[in-house]
Write a protein that binds this DNA or RNA. Structure first.
Lengths: 217, 217
DNA sequence: ACCAATCTGGTAGTGACTATCACCAAGGTA
DNA sequence: TACCTTGGTGATAGTCACTACCAGATTGGT
């Protein structure tokens, strides 16, 4: 069965990948990103530098790689198309944030975010990744791709939404995750677009401000 | 007179800097960014690689370095504080764009933009530079820096405006500068924030009803 | 037992960037 | 003229991220 084989291999592959990334984030956080070489990461993970590069094309990807991007795009595609653009995109972002911060890897995510914010190289590549996410969102919205003028407006709205998201995420990380991230995103969207957009949700009932109830200050 | 001497030296320094950058952009555009080494640039400019690194700390800066950043911040600081945030920032961006695209170095600017858009490394660092510009804008706005919640909202609004700006600039470059850039920016701002950005205020009282300021001190 | 695909490791490279040294031109002083 | 400081410049050697290219080991399927 090629099915089972590839499943097993993919599993092992994902395991070593997680192990390497965990060691990388730990070392980067302890010693600093620039002061840690890929060789150090490989040694800590018990593999050769070659193997590290097989799993992570660049040193930055040791921190940045994950699989959350498509999650957002899927939610956008699922959102009702009748709503105005920024609300449609913003709502999907808030929902995705609720799903992501609820997981058990919250501390790991926070550590990675802190590195992204404080390290110029990581910050730059992360922003470029968000730019790629923007393209995915535009594709997911699927509004009139034929009309370049309409496509341009979708680009503008998506980029502005993602910028507000980024601001909220940075604030969340600076707060050590103590604030509710969906609420922060909502605040950022409201600050940028006005009260009628950031309003979280009558349309998205997924959850209120406190998914995990003992979190707040 | 140390005055005149340093003036002369600064002049010569700026000259070689411009010469190096011109050769760099030319070579990058002709052969591609990755296919061109810093050594090639140095040779084309008639200097040693060391000299290149003295003027441009990184290879990316050969394309990205300029001095328009503070121009925008100055205009923001000069804008009437009574207007809503996005209009204040957006207006300054439109004015700056008009000033920049009117200059004689329009073709040079376009060449640099094309490189920034198509080269991942340049795109990433450029986005990070815009992030730095965002901080400058926030500082220039100077709204209630003491209140972290207000500062957060300014960050969100500024980031969204800059994102819309970026979308417009990309479109402008893809159009080879044929479209009027200020008009594109205005369109992008409208697409993101609504029709009234160019006219009245969309939004944004200092403290909206839906903003959750609960996480405060 | 045998084959094929994949994962892994080692060995040079290339190229961006840095640290350290010496050289040289310009201006001021004795 | 000789001397000295200052700032731009150049050469050498090194670190490190990253990339072929090649060899061994492991695993799944026959």
């Amino acid at each position: 069965m090629p099915d089972q084989r590839s499943r097993l291999r993919d599993q092992r592959r994902a395991d070593t990948q997680r192990a390497i990334q965990a060691q990388a984030v730990r070392l980067f956080s302890e010693r600093g990103y620039d002061a840690t070489t890929v060789h150090d990461v490989a040694e800590a993970a018990g593999v050769s530098p070659m193997t590290v590069y097989r799993h992570f094309p660049t040193k930055e990807d040791l921190v940045l790689l994950d699989d959350r991007g498509q999650l957002v795009a899927e939610r956008i595609a699922a959102a009702p198309a009748a709503q105005p653009l920024v609300r449609r995109i913003g709502g999907a972002l808030i929902e995705s944030a609720a799903a992501l911060t609820g997981g058990s890897h919250r501390d790991f995510l926070l550590a990675r975010l802190r590195l992204m914010i404080s390290t110029p190289a990581l910050r730059a590549k992360h922003l470029d990744n968000q730019y790629a996410l923007q393209q995915a969102i535009v594709a997911a919205v699927g509004d009139d791709a034929a009309d370049p003028d309409s496509a341009f407006r979708v680009q503008a709205a998506a980029s502005a939404c993602l910028a507000a998201l980024h601001t909220a995420v940075v604030r969340w990380a600076e707060d050590d995750g103590r604030t509710d991230l969906p609420a922060l995103i909502s605040t950022a969207l409201t600050a940028a677009f006005g009260d009628d957009v950031g309003g979280r949700a009558p349309t998205h009932r997924t959850d209120g401000p406190t998914t995990r109830s003992g979190q707040g200050p």
